[in-house]
Amino acid sequence: MIELSNVSKTFTLHNQGGAVLEVMRGANLVVPKGECVALTGASGAGKSTLMRIIYGNYLAAAGTVKVGDVDVTKAAPREILALRRDTLGYVSQFLRVVPRVSTLDVVAEPLLSLGVAADEAKDRAAALLGKLNIPEALWGLSPTTFSGGEQQRVNIARGFAHEYPALLLDEPTASLDATNREVVLGLIEDAKARGTSIVGIFHDEAARARVCDREIDVTGFSPQAAA
């Protein structure tokens, strides 16, 4: 489902004397259906960079990144957007939403953009928020005022609202209590059982051991390692 071959990434800092930073070279990764791969490596090794390249958020300098039939490195913006709408979900560490939009609408939005009827989308959003123990009293409020843990759960609900065939998870269990951590791990297991391919970053070792089939140390993709 997700297939990276020979991916490299450089940053050119035009406003700092044109310095070129090469951060990744020769990255290869294959994630078949129903498998969950954990990215590991020290902070700054390039775990998030790799996730962002898969999501099309960062531009790869070379190589191919295939998600389903789409090569993210060559796709037009609208093709990447269609991919993100239908196929590829992303739960980031940070919640980025339009201010003043209610939590229920934030979670339902991915479904609405797929053309799901408003009632149905809201029902599904409500079910997820309930499952993730967000008090119903908060559903009508904007999540921008929520605590870190609540925001994280809203983010997860949004990421799982649509059953994407491929998912990117950035620290999904960070800042969650035991109960909610259990709910999130359950959601991940359900997704795997449906055949979802998952690439994730988990600092929580127990969680990683439970849901991940493999670990890939991205230190191996650094230019130094490749050299």
């Binding site: 035009h14 962002r52 913006p77």
Partner: peptide, 21 residues
Amino acid sequence: TGLTDQVLDDPQHSYTQLLVS
């Protein structure tokens, strides 16, 4: 030109980098 979040998060041209920063 490009996908909005890509241009804003990984700007390629020096002017875009300046604008974003």
